[in-house]
Design a protein around this nucleic acid. Sequence first.
RNA 1: GGGCGAUUAGCUCAGUUGGUUAGAGCGCCUCCCUUACAAGGAGGAUGUCGGGGGUUCGAGUCCCUCAUCGCCUACCA
Length: 801
Amino acid sequence: MTLPLTGREIPLITDEWADPSLGTGCVKITPAHDPNDYEVWQRHREIGAVNVLNSNGTIAAQGPYQGLDRFAARKRIMADLDAQGLVEKIEDRTIEIDHSDRSKTIVEPWLSKQWFVHMADVDGGIVMGRGTSKEFHSKGLAQAALDATAGALPAFADGTKRAQVMFHPDQDRYRKMYDQWLAEKRDWCISRQLWWGHRIPVWRGDLPTQHLLMLAPMLKGQLSRDDVAAWIVLPDGTRLSVADAITRLQQPNAPQSIEVQICFRDESADATTGPMLQGAGLELDPDVLDTWFSSALWPHSTLGWPHPETAKVDAGQPSLGGKDGHKSALDYWYPGSCLVTGRDIITLWVARMVITGLYNLGDVPFSSVFLHATILDGKGERMSKSKGNGIDPLDIISRYGADALRYVVCELQTGTQDIRLPVQAISPFTKEGEPERLIDLATAKPGPYLGTFLDPVTKQPMDLIGQYAKEGLTPAKATSDRFAVGANFCNKLFNAARFAFLNLEGSTFVARKAGDLPLEDRWILSRLAKARAAVHGSLSDYNPAAAIAVAREFFWGELCDWYLELIKPRFRPETDANERAIAQQTLAFVLDQTLRLLHPFVPFLTETLWQSLRSLAPVRGIEAPLSDSELIVHAKWPEAGTARIDAEAEAAVAAVQQWCAAIREARASYQVVPRARIGVRIQATGALATLLQRGQGLLAHMAGAESIAIGADQQPTKDSATVVIGDGKAYLLGVVDLDKERDKLGKQAEKLRQQIQSMEQKLGNEGFRAKAPPQVIAQQEESLAAMRQQVAGIEQRLREL
RNA sequence: GGGCGAUUAGCUCAGUUGGUUAGAGCGCCUCCCUUACAAGGAGGAUGUCGGGGGUUCGAGUCCCUCAUCGCCUACCA
């Protein structure tokens, strides 16, 4: 057939690609400009492939359109076809076209030569870690990386197992992502057309066949060396070793011209031998390596691979080589333990690091991969510099502090859930003296350019990416008030420590048995031991948010809210010196351990407080002195201290807390002035009475009671408010309004009756009785009995009123 | 189109193998500047756990389905 536009003769072929249901069922094929047409070309090599475009988007093909921009050419082509009367119909059709993310330009497919890394299995297998003590064989690169996560890599020569690469916090999910991608074993295109990066170390060029044959005797010697790889590519794409090529090219019908490709193992050869190759018409490939190729080398290249002894280091840094019997940096640090990265990086980078580590060193670069969540903006979109919806950590640091940033980021990392972090712009249009105005970027109207937003008050555009100074736009910074949580935490920690420091003057260490300490001391030591275990457990589970929640609850909810308040009386001037000394010793110990526990989350503040603590209480401990350290960053992680777990103390303080909360609630609902100290009588018998008597003083102190009397014979006065918990009753003297009291107790009883009813229904269900585990049934029966008892107590009190 | 996830309080998120009345922080309401802390304290309100089906004595949790959203990947002249 003749192509009407250029008069070129083109073949007519049949192929499954053409769809008879679309248009005429006939379609032009442009293998160099369409991935599907490219596939057609692979099936019909005779049609050839013409690269229609130049790299700048103008028409390359000879003819009337040469040099025209592609958009202009398309219009011209339509006009020309129309002029020739060849256009029957024009239909609108929606198609999807790729656009460059950065420039938004339409991406045009373009035929070009690229380098690929062969990922699939290779006949005879490949050698991994060649020449190292960890050398082993694998079927192929991708397969080796699959074996790494399957735990299927062969053992080392000495019989020890190679590490299995494990994913956290969701091994199944993330390993599946990794495995599914690798299982395709698709070749990895490593050529990139960028002006920066690691240049692909291959010399190539077209040579006349005669030229190559003349050089043959010399090449045979040079190119069979182990440190040079060389190939000859025939015009039909066949790729041969130099020796095979020379044999082949001496036969009749040999092509006139061939392509030569040479790669030196040692990159210095590019400089020494390069000029000679250039003279022969070869050039170093102008493309650079894929970012991920260079990045894949990071775990070992940063440690001086392949020669740590001679690896370049910055001025003032020690050599990476080993000496005096010490290992080199590479031997010491490789393999590493844990890689922390994002989910989208699993295939791009993690898999490739495993591949290059196994290939170059015969070992995995790390055994654990911790995938953190992705931080998104308030709309659920990825933060991006060009969109201006991101936050600069340095801005957060200057606004809230480095510890606040770290604390909140740890707190956000809960598991596999992506994190929405609403972003606000700080309005640059507030006047002197006006309060700062934060503008939520999720709802703000976009400005005239990408990365700009309108200030809703002044309607002026703000530049969030600092790119529009020329256009006269005012730059604005982004922040997120979520980080205030971290700053508040630091403030609380600072103040709690300050309270301790104000009272630790003259603190000494005397070996004591934890069991001999006062109730509140035994309690906080017990809680500390449990918090320590829980924080440790959560960190081991790669769950920083859970760890920080436990640490926070211990520090704020138990140490500050209860323990510091409970021991205040012991620091009063009139207190016995020994009691004070014990309080100091326990406080110093607990603060020591708390600082260590919080150090991973707020390192700078804990480091500062550590210095003060050390100078005020140089020796800290209970049974024995703790190990000390000049810097907390070097200090040992808090000791397990499980021996200090004290169920009895915990039960007593838990009772104090429960009754205190109930008394406070009653005080609040009767609007008792917070500072007023009231009389309290608690009617209780048996175990409850014993428990409350242990914590009697503490309860009085914390509940703002002038005095607390506890006993079976305690009776209310007429003006008492009543608090009923279980089979005990507390009477708050002189606070009551009778109507209000009846109303309150009536509501409480009603709520309890509803719960009792639903519980009775459940327990009366034969299916439940027959099938539920006995301990669940027992538990529910127990709680039903307790609720019935409580209701009875309330009803009795109501009758009395 | 394929794959992997998500949907719980106004907001951001927890909720372990199914088991009492579903939690936290922020925000909100009331009271309090009490000699560590108002960036704080005491108390309080707020949820048909995305919709619909199913399994079970029992479902936020397991299964199916629909809706919406996100990520990875492919992509029809």
